[in-house]
Amino acid sequence: MPRWGMVIDLDRCTGCQACVIACKQENNVPFSTPATAEKGRQISWMYIQTEVEGESPDVKVRFRPMLCQHCDRPPCIFVCPTRATYITPEGIVAQTYPRCIGCRYCANACPYTVKYFNWTAPEWPKQLQASLNGDVSVRPKGVIEKCTFCSHRRTKAKETAEAEGRAMRDEDYQPACVQACPAGAMVFGDLDNPDSQVAEWARSPRAERLMEDLGTKPKVIYLKEGI
């Protein structure tokens, strides 16, 4: 059984936000208005965390694409009172929207703060409503949502592979952010398959997981920037 994971090379990341837009488009993430942003309520399953180092003129800006880390031991799933958030056998941390009671306990338990709440009913400009992705359910107000590693694409890829009578390949299933990255900074695939590109990148001496000391065992791995 595959163990899906992602490696992001921070040396290649340009902070262009293509992954952010691709994610929103793919997953029917509602648009934020300046008002929602001001209140700290925008939903963005993927966002670029920026860190400014040094003082002018000697400034260095670091970018880190932040998304659900899909922990192997996710703190969020233990605290959920209804199993609305759970981990699939293939290691994807998922959220069942119709089961979620909106207590936001998982959001508080997550050390990465990557779970988002629907404070109000989602809205799209009329012109964009036709471009909603039919494979992804639109979330009602009052539930938690988060990155799913585009798991609807996994379902599709698996069904296609089965119909064609072959095994699923890594390239059959790629999340939208990985596909969109113009710098080729992200790879996705089966971490347990030693021949996969994602496993090869994960073996890099630059590989690090966020807050490894917490024992959450994330499956999003970052390749540290060189100097």
Binding site: C100, I101, G102, C103, R104, F117, P140, K141, V143, I144
Partner: peptide
């Protein structure tokens, strides 16, 4: 406090 009290 629940987002979905109907599902309590």
């Amino acid at each position: 406090d629940l987002g979905r009290p109907d599902r309590a």
